[in-house]
Design a protein around this nucleic acid. Structure first.
Lengths: 207, 207
DNA sequence: GTCTATACCTCGATAGAC
DNA sequence: GTCTATCGAGGTATAGAC
């Protein structure tokens, strides 16, 4: 949210309405058609301008891709950190992970075009773009590992698997919900509650 | 396996070594670069032939895509059904789902280029190709729903979520393992055991 | 800040020699 | 069954008028 403040616009990246529109439509098209299959003519058309005009706002198609990918991670990490930081000091590990799950799902599902584009495309972009984004992904993974190792130390996390395995499984499972989540089939908070229950306690009953 | 029998080659689709090679390299390139970004010149080059020669074996790039997608599902469904069918009649629901999970992971991870290509690009292919593959996906989902509803009836599955939700979460979580599974970090059977434990009983301990 | 026009390139696909 | 050569279409990106 802070990056969108109107009071202190960065001189490098002024977000004109047209520029934001281009990013939005690009994310939507990248998500549904893929990066290579999306043409700048399509992006321009969806944005209500002509193809040549895009180059007033962006240097290249690759730059648009970079900003779409960035935003896809940013909205998730921001939501997660905000919710975890808002917890009282005495929160249990379970409460902290639950807050992280809710933040992850919120960012993921409320900016679906950016997050789904990120998830779908990341494995298919040129190595140069991948390298730039590896660190930001690594940082987010480290954040989760911290949460999980804390839970392990406190004896709350299961100990017959590694935290890395739990993290990979969990984030993968959460990420994929953006491909099938249907907001018309129930409230977001109900969805979060059910996913969290499955993640914590599993799909089968135990006496 | 039965579909690969050398004794009864189908007249429509004789699998010459070159044809199989093209499919294999196409799957690998689709997986890592996406469908639109992969050129037939690249596929031909990787297959040790020239671009024009592809058209002796396939009518179009779209046809190659179709066969890659088909195989990506086929290997999984075959492995699942085989393992579930091999169970004794008195098997519990938990045993049946465990067998399905193992089959799914086996097919998924032992044919990673086909299955990952399928998962990654399905959301990005033209509607025509999507429609052809919707039914085969639906059939597989129905199969899982059958397993899960049986488990629910027997009181083994948790009842505070729908079977559809469990199925979507579960298959999504399993599918994404192909993006991070590392066979060098442990035996496949150990991996299956850990994933199954997490799916059944969750990531946190309960007394 | 957006337009039109276009340069330059690479793609999928085809034709015909071998 | 594979090759070379090439066609027409459509891509990114640029130039310059407005």
């Amino acid at each position: 949210m802070a990056t969108k403040s109107r009071e202190t616009p960065t001189p490098v990246e002024v977000d004109s309405a047209t520029r934001e529109r281009i990013l939005l439509e690009a994310a939507r098209l990248f998500r549904h058609h893929g990066y290579a299959a999306t043409t700048l003519r399509e992006v321009a058309d969806a944005s209500g301008i002509k193809a040549g005009s895009i180059y007033y706002h962006f240097e290249s198609k690759d730059q648009i891709l970079g900003e779409v990918l960035d935003k896809g991670i940013q909205v998730v990490t921001d939501a997660v950190r905000q919710r975890v930081d808002a917890l009282p000091a005495g929160a249990t590990a379970r409460q902290r992970v639950a807050a992280a799950i809710e933040g992850h799902l919120w960012g993921l599902l409320h900016h679906g075009d950016f997050t789904s584009a990120n998830i779908r495309i990341y494995g298919q972009i040129p190595p140069a773009a991948k390298n730039r984004h590896r660190k930001i992904r690594r940082d987010y993974a480290d954040y989760w590992d911290g949460l999980l190792e804390d839970a392990l130390k406190r004896g709350e996390l299961r100990s017959d698997t590694s935290t890395a395995m739990v993290r990979l499984f969990l984030i993968g499972a959460l990420n994929w919900t953006v491909e099938w989540y249907n907001p018309q089939k129930g409230a977001f908070q109900d969805f979060v509650k059910q996913i969290t229950a499955i993640v914590f306690d599993g799909t089968f009953v135990h006496d």
